[in-house]
């Protein structure tokens, strides 16, 4: 009820409620850490937009980690978040300068290993970029159908009504066709996919 109880949250509480997508916790994370991230990016030659960009990516990493097998970090959440932000920013800087980037290894007390998380995140980012291109290529109906199911979590029943399929089964078949098309484009080796089909049969 009152807004003043949120003075501090434990790391555990933040992680578990972030995993549930609690808006108050996201707000708390923003209030608590955005200023430090902004300051850090400023110091490292970034702009306001850069700082906000970096922060969004860092919170996304945190969210995905929390949602996954539960976040297990050996340091304080703030240390982790700052380390992530720093590496995200250095990575972006490197990309801008077209140089390669390797995750910083900081060797001091309470060392934080973020290498895996950062690399995983940028691999996801590359995949999503590829996915977006594929979405454009598979055509509007397929695009909408896949997004409705996989991103907006709509049920097959709702989708079949919304898209005008005769029943959920029909919509589901269409979904697999679309997904197969997407996969072919995504991995760009149509030949191989055909082989799969033969093999599967």
């Amino acid at each position: 009820m009152d807004s003043h109880t949120s003075n501090s949250m434990t790391d555990e509480a933040i992680i578990s409620s972030l995993a549930n997508g609690d808006s108050k916790t996201i707000n708390y994370i923003y209030k608590t850490w955005y200023p430090s991230v902004e300051k850090m990016v400023f110091k490292m030659n970034g702009s306001v937009d850069d700082a906000y960009d970096v922060f969004q990516d860092s919170v996304t990493i945190l969210y995905e980690k929390a949602k996954g097998n539960g976040l297990q970090i050996s340091c304080k959440l703030s240390t982790y978040l700052i380390a992530i932000s720093k590496n995200v920013w250095l990575n972006k800087l490197a990309k801008r300068k077209k140089t390669s980037f390797t995750v910083l290894h900081e060797h001091h007390e309470g060392e934080v290993s973020v290498e895996q998380d950062i690399n995983r995140f940028f691999e996801f980012e590359r995949n999503v970029e590829k996915l977006q291109t594929c979405f454009q290529q598979i055509g509007e109906p397929c695009n909408e159908l896949l997004r409705a199911f996989y991103i907006h979590n709509k049920s097959m029943q709702d989708i079949s009504e919304e898209f005008g399929y005769t029943n959920a089964e029909n919509a589901k078949n269409q979904k697999y066709k679309c997904l197969l098309r997407l996969r072919k484009l995504f991995f760009k080796h149509g030949e191989k996919v055909n082989e799969h089909e033969r093999a599967i049969k």
Binding site: G21, S23, N27, T60, Y63, E64, V128, R183
Partner: peptide, 23 residues
């Protein structure tokens, strides 16, 4: 890989929208 990419896209959109509102 495809499913993980969908998941990631979903997380990115969720976090971006939530933070945009606050920011």
């Amino acid at each position: 890989t495809i499913l993980l990419s969908f998941d990631h896209l979903q997380s990115v959109q969720f976090i971006h929208e939530s933070l945009d509102a606050i920011h």
